[in-house]
Amino acid sequence: IDVRFTVNGLDVTVRVRTEEIAERVKELAKNGVDWREIQRIAEELNK
């Protein structure tokens, strides 16, 4: 599942395995978490 969001004007796409992880990623993006941090968290959750 590809999750797309915009952080500080940057369009970011993170690929995740499940809808649940996708929701977590969207939540982080909404809360203004840095995209590199979101990427790292997504990689952890995908394991």
Score class of each variant (00 low, 15 high):
D2N: 10
L45A: 05
V25Q: 00
V3D: 01
R40H: 07
A42T: 06
E27K: 09
V7I: 13
L10S: 09
V33G: 04
E27R: 08
T18K: 02
W35D: 02
L10W: 08
E37A: 08
L10F: 14
V14L: 14
Q39Y: 13
A22R: 05
E27M: 13
V7D: 06
F5Y: 04
I21W: 02
I38N: 00
K26F: 10
E44D: 09
T13L: 10
G32L: 08
R24Q: 11
T18Q: 02
I21L: 05
I41A: 05
E23D: 11
V7G: 04
R36P: 14
K26W: 11
E23P: 00
T6N: 12
A29C: 06
K47T: 11
V3Q: 01
V3A: 02
N46A: 04
E19D: 09
L28V: 02
R4H: 15
R24W: 07
E20H: 08
V7W: 12
R24T: 13
R36N: 13
T6D: 06
K47N: 14
K26Y: 11
V16L: 03
V12K: 06
K47G: 11
N8W: 04
A42Q: 01
G9T: 03
D34M: 09
V16W: 01
T13I: 15
E20K: 11
N46V: 02
W35R: 04
E44V: 08
K30I: 12
E37K: 08
D2M: 13
N31A: 15
D2S: 10
Q39H: 06
I1S: 04
V12W: 08
G9P: 00
R40S: 08
V33A: 08
R17L: 15
R24A: 11
I41N: 02
E37Q: 09
L10M: 14
K30W: 07
D34S: 14
E44C: 10
D11F: 13
D11L: 15
I38Y: 02
V7F: 12
E19G: 08
R15N: 13
G9W: 02
K47P: 03
E20G: 09
L28F: 06
K26M: 14
G32D: 05
V12N: 02
A22E: 05
D2C: 13
W35T: 05
D34V: 07
A29Y: 15
V33L: 11
E44L: 09
D2G: 04
V25T: 01
V3E: 01
F5K: 00
E44M: 08
R40C: 08
L28T: 01
R15A: 06
R4A: 09
L28P: 00
R15P: 04
Q39F: 14
V25C: 04
E43G: 06
N46H: 03
L45W: 11
E23Y: 11
T13R: 05
E37Y: 08
R17V: 15
A22D: 00
K47E: 13
I41L: 07
D11I: 15
N31E: 12
D2R: 09
A42C: 05
D2L: 14
K47I: 14
T18D: 08
N31D: 12
A29W: 15
V12F: 15
N46F: 04
V14P: 00
A22S: 05
A42H: 01
E20R: 08
E44P: 01
N8M: 09
R17Y: 13
V12G: 02
R40D: 05
W35F: 14
E20W: 15
D2W: 15
R24K: 15
R24Y: 13
L28N: 01
E27Q: 14
I1P: 02
I41C: 05
D34K: 09
N31P: 02
I21E: 04
R17S: 10
E43F: 09
K26H: 07
A42K: 01
T13V: 15
T13Y: 12
E43N: 10
K30Q: 12
D11M: 15
A42E: 01
T18Y: 03
V33M: 11
L45S: 04
V25W: 01
L45I: 03
G9Q: 04
E20L: 10
E37W: 08
D34T: 12
A22T: 01
I21N: 03
T6C: 08
N46Y: 04
D2Q: 10
K26G: 04
T13A: 07
E20I: 08
V14S: 00
I38H: 00
T6P: 05
E27D: 09
K26P: 00
V3R: 01
E44K: 07
N46R: 02
I38K: 00
F5V: 13
R15T: 14
V33N: 05
E44R: 07
R17C: 06
V3F: 05
E27W: 14
W35A: 08
D2P: 07
E27S: 10
E20M: 10
V14W: 05
K47A: 15
N31K: 13
V3Y: 03
N8H: 08
V3K: 01
V14D: 00
I1W: 14
A22I: 02
V16P: 00
R24V: 15
D34Q: 09
E43K: 08
